[in-house]
Amino acid sequence: MNTARDLTIVALDQASDHPVEQGDLSLALAAAEVFDLLEAQALVLDGDLIRPSAQAPTGDRLLDEAASSLVRQEPYEPVEDWLWRRGRGLSAAYVEDLESVGLTDRPRGRLLSLRSARTAPVDSEARRRAEERWASGEPVLAALAAAAGIRDEPADPGEDFADETVTTVLAAVGDAVMELEAVRQRRAIEDAAFDNVWRGY
């Protein structure tokens, strides 16, 4: 199961109705990679610390890249630090990866954009799998989509995730997205104040 790729496909499918901030999606994709690497037994969580396990190829270029970039010495990296470090530019990397393997129909040579009407997944097994997970309301995918802003409503905060590692990762991505939004709002206020100074207000 490739949650990160499925999340990217869902984001592209839903982009016309739910345009997402690339930063939010990048953080959610980094969280999705944690789940994928947990499933591949490439890491374990020790509290909120990511502890690398035996590295074995996953068969996915971006996941293998993620596994190779894990901090392998103590003190291990907290999940939220990983989200910020790994998440930088990750949404563009996943969109580009889908394009490179022929899973989108966006013409080459244009700037990558999740808002572009030309960028859409083609009919494929990967798209059908992602659509099935999305339609079924699979809890982890739904929670990551909510963090990325793809859903109209946030995931149910009362959702009962039996696995504490799932709760830890989802809490970390939720905190990171809120922090990113706070940064955006602060910059918007600062930019508005700067503009007002120049206008003589």
Rank of each mutant, 00 (worst) to 15 (best):
P154D: 12
E125K: 05
A28F: 03
W198M: 15
V122N: 00
D24R: 13
D123H: 12
Q73D: 09
A30L: 07
L144I: 06
L27G: 04
E33N: 07
V197K: 11
E190N: 11
A145I: 01
D160L: 13
E132N: 04
Q14K: 15
V169E: 07
L170G: 11
L70E: 04
Q185L: 14
P157Y: 09
S113V: 02
W134A: 07
Q185W: 11
E159H: 09
E179D: 15
R110F: 11
S124W: 11
L12D: 01
A192E: 15
R199E: 15
R151W: 04
A15M: 06
T58W: 00
L37G: 06
G47A: 08
F194P: 01
M178T: 13
A93L: 07
V10L: 09
E33V: 01
P78C: 01
E77A: 03
R118E: 14
P19V: 06
A146Q: 08
D36K: 01
A67C: 10
A162S: 14
A54T: 15
D97L: 03
E99I: 00
A148S: 12
A15K: 13
F194Q: 13
G174N: 13
A11W: 03
G149M: 03
D191G: 02
I9H: 02
D152E: 14
L144T: 08
W82V: 03
A172W: 07
L70T: 07
D97M: 11
G59F: 05
L43S: 05
F194K: 14
W134C: 01
L144V: 07
L170F: 09
L111W: 10
N2F: 00
L62W: 00
T119E: 06
S16G: 00
L25I: 07
D46Q: 14
E125D: 12
R151L: 15
L170V: 11
R106K: 08
G23T: 13
A176S: 12
L180K: 12
P157S: 08
S116V: 00
D105S: 14
A176W: 06
A130F: 00
V34A: 05
W198D: 13
A162I: 10
V44S: 15
D195G: 02
V44C: 11
R128H: 08
P121V: 05
